Simulated assay, not measured.
Amino acid sequence: MTQTLGVALLGTGRMAHVYGPKINAHPGLKLEVIYNPRMSSAQKAVAQYGGRPLDDLDIVLADASVDAVVIATPTDTHLDYIEKVAQAGKPIYCEKPLDQTLERVDQAMAALHAHPVPFMLGFNRRFDPDNKALRDAVQNGEIGQINMLMSWSREPAPPPIEYVRVSGGYFVDATIHDIDLLCWIAGERPVEVSACGSCMFDPQIGAEGDFDLTMTTLKMPSGALLHINNSRACAYGFDQRLEAFGDKGMVQTVNHRDDNLVRWDKQRTAAREPLKHFFLERYDQSFYQALDEFHSAIIAGRAPSSSAQDGRAALAIALACARSAREGRAISPDY
């Protein structure tokens, strides 16, 4: 029988609406509480997903039915919640990133050191079945030694400018996913990064000093080169692909479609249906698998596989990429 953990979900925004259904779908998790300092927001979420609405975090953390906490609140609140939840002795699953600055990430890690609890950072793309299969192929030696590892990650359309202004910049907001994923696959972290950026889709993004089109190269200690290309817009949908190239071969992931048939006739020579629209659809299963890893680690008494240290490293690399793009030179990350 699966051991059940009672969960408190902090937040009622977009990511909370991702995790609410996944918690309910997992046989080892039970949604006990949804917290928001605005009770009306908590009540609306409870009406959708169940549990009890609470607007007092102290009451949430004192609740004996709450065995673990999922933090799905805005990034600038993560530090405060991590400090309070860790002090209460509850295991934590936190949506990425930990924060947008290394100083605040270090404060969060200090809190976790002072109050050791199981902690997992929500780098969900590690848990996508296709991405995991590619990593397994690499780790099993199918392509020999990695020479190049490449990621294409292009979004359907630019986000609202209000989001861009608080996102931390394109590298910290979006490229960080690719950084973590590729370093996880490669099993090492870069000694040097080179990045460049442009703004070709939304002039408002450029006016904020940010990019909507970037290319990034990570140079690894082994000599392998990792390439990431990101775009805030893509006419044909949410383009998500990986390629690992080694001295014995290559493995790739392909985009997901609702219809994967390849049709050949007078009008068509390939599947023409749109790609999965955005991350909520494309990576739907990965959020469930990430929570499953969190549950399994707590029950087994081991550390979850996506750690605070992983989050700090990915942020350090992303910040180095942003600096490289601004300064037009290679940068060594501040680990």
Rank of each mutant, 00 (worst) to 15 (best):
Asp210His: 01
Leu10Pro: 02
Asn24Thr: 09
Cys196Thr: 14
Ser324Ile: 10
Ser40Thr: 07
Glu208Ser: 01
Gly197Arg: 00
Ser151Lys: 10
Asn147His: 15
His295Ala: 09
Gln87Asn: 05
Arg263Leu: 08
Ser167Ile: 13
Arg257Asn: 02
Gln87Ser: 08
Val172Thr: 10
Ala271Thr: 12
Ala316Cys: 03
Ile82Cys: 04
Phe287Ile: 09
Ala290Arg: 06
Phe279His: 02
Ser41Gly: 02
Ile299Val: 15
Met220Asp: 07
Gln204His: 14
Ala174Trp: 12
Arg232Lys: 04
Pro118Arg: 09
Lys22Arg: 15
Asp130Gly: 04
His295Gly: 05
Ile23Glu: 03
Gln252Leu: 15
Glu208Ala: 07
Gly206Phe: 11
Glu32Phe: 00
Leu134His: 01
Gly11Asn: 10
Phe279Gly: 00
Met39Arg: 15
Ile59Cys: 07
Trp264Leu: 15
Gly89Arg: 09
Gln145Asp: 03
Ala137Met: 07
Ile299Cys: 14
Leu280Phe: 08
Ala290Leu: 05
Glu293Phe: 13
Asn36Ile: 02
Val262Gln: 13
Arg125Asp: 12
Leu291Val: 06
Asn36Thr: 04
Ile205Leu: 08
Lys248Val: 00
Lys30Val: 14
Asp128Gly: 00
Asn140Val: 00
Gly20Thr: 01
Arg189His: 09
Gln289His: 14
Gln240Tyr: 12
Asn230Val: 08
Val251Ile: 14
Leu218His: 06
Arg257Gln: 01
Ala114Ile: 06
Ile331Ser: 05
Ile146Gly: 04
Tyr170Asp: 00
Asn260Thr: 14
Met15Cys: 12
Leu5Ile: 11
Asp128Asn: 06
Leu319Arg: 08
Val85Met: 04
Cys199Asn: 11
Ile205Ser: 00
Val262His: 13
Leu54Pro: 00
